[in-house]
Design a protein around this nucleic acid. Structure first.
Lengths: 219, 219
DNA sequence: ACAAATTTTTAGCTTTGTCTAAATTATTTA
DNA sequence: TAAATAATTTAGACAAAGCTAAAAATTTGT
């Protein structure tokens, strides 16, 4: 598989996980930042290789082989992200670009050993689950911060949006994975929240609140 | 720069270091395992980019920019080799293939941090010097085992041939970098040697002896 | 239901990197 | 030194991956 093919497979997987039922050529083109005509060409190629189901004008979906391939690429991507943060001291907003390159390195042994070096992590620096060697993908049993009722206490376990801008915003406000947060108040008008993070009081917008995954702690 | 361009630059650098004065299209083609016509095409492209000096029928050589580029790629290659051996437990005959892929990853920070993680190594697992950030390349002040006079004692500091076959031969015979070796006898007829390696007596052919770099120890 | 709008595909072109076969230039040798 | 041989380059093709512009199919709106 070429780098480009792998990137398309990954994009289709992510679109499929994001709850869309039928994945259109346009959706793939937008995600890949390319033109729909290029997507059509690539879908034909991936279809020939048995990685996607593709019928003209009907949208595209991954075959079991395609899904397995996607999970293997995502596994590599996320393991490398852990490596960059844990071993090389990268910040969590700096890892994506480099991991995009590293995920294409072909060596089963490399990934197995890397996994071992990192002590078999289950989540990447953004809280996303790392697929296992055989493609088992742990499901986040978390919810979005904005949906918690007032008074609840939760642990921050992940970010939905892992763009550098958002991550740096979190850094500036000392919000990190593992933080304990309590909902103090919710503003009816704009759904913004007043929360308590590790003894510190903070006011956050609905935008922010809907991009933080949390796990409720029962008291 | 594309992967392919980088590979050509590296190949030309290695040919130049191996003492050839004029690097022919054929020589590059052989090293790259490709056809001379493909080399001609690539030399034109690299020449346009200012990486090589190229005149039809006259052979090719690296410009200062080309040399700098080559050293940067070799630096990456060798640092990754150290990583694979030191951190991931790869054997020295398994690293080349993977390092060939890793050397093309583009991130200055990645390499700087990797260098740091590895405690700024000066040599790779085969004893080859690792170029510095600014392209300084340490010169091996070593000689080939076969050239030592009888009775001399030396440390094994590198291998000239780092093919997997040769490296596995060394493994099977417990010859490793850092070993102390003493020349006991030299066979006039075939230049084979009887040597003492760390208390163990061994008979090695001239072939082998001329592929081991050693550093004499004065007694 | 049919025209308009949107989406998707096709056709044809570009670049990178490769190839083969033919032509050209250099080198060797008799 | 001239012919033979070897090395190198050119010309023309091909595959991957992208693009633009035009055509075709689907969806939408009235």
């Amino acid at each position: 598989m070429t780098h480009s093919e792998e990137n398309y497979i990954k994009a289709i997987f992510h679109l499929a996980s994001s709850g869309i039922d039928v994945i259109s050529t346009n959706a793939v083109a937008e995600k890949m930042e390319t033109k729909p005509s290029s997507v059509t060409d690539m879908m034909k190629r991936l279809s020939e290789k048995g990685l996607v189901h593709y019928k003209k004008y009907q949208g595209v979906s991954l075959t079991p082989l395609g899904t397995k391939t996607a999970l293997s690429i995502i596994r590599k991507h996320r393991l490398w992200e852990v490596f960059l943060v844990e071993k090389l001291g990268f910040a969590w907003d700096e890892v994506h670009e480099v991991a995009e390159q590293l995920e294409h390195i072909k060596s089963e042994k490399l990934i197995d050993k890397l996994d071992e070096l990192l002590s078999f992590p289950k989540f990447d620096p953004h809280g996303d689950p790392i697929p296992g060697k055989n493609g088992e993908l742990m499901e986040h049993d978390s919810q979005v911060l904005g949906q918690l009722p007032i008074g609840s206490v939760a642990l921050c376990v992940g970010v939905k949006d892992s763009s550098a801008v958002f991550l740096r915003f979190l850094d500036r406000n000392s919000i990190a994975l593992g933080n304990k947060m309590k909902i103090l108040e919710k503003e009816e008008f704009d759904n913004s929240l007043r929360i308590l993070i590790d003894e510190r009081e903070l006011h956050i917008s609905q935008q922010i609140a809907s991009n933080l995954y949390v796990k409720k702690i029962e008291l």
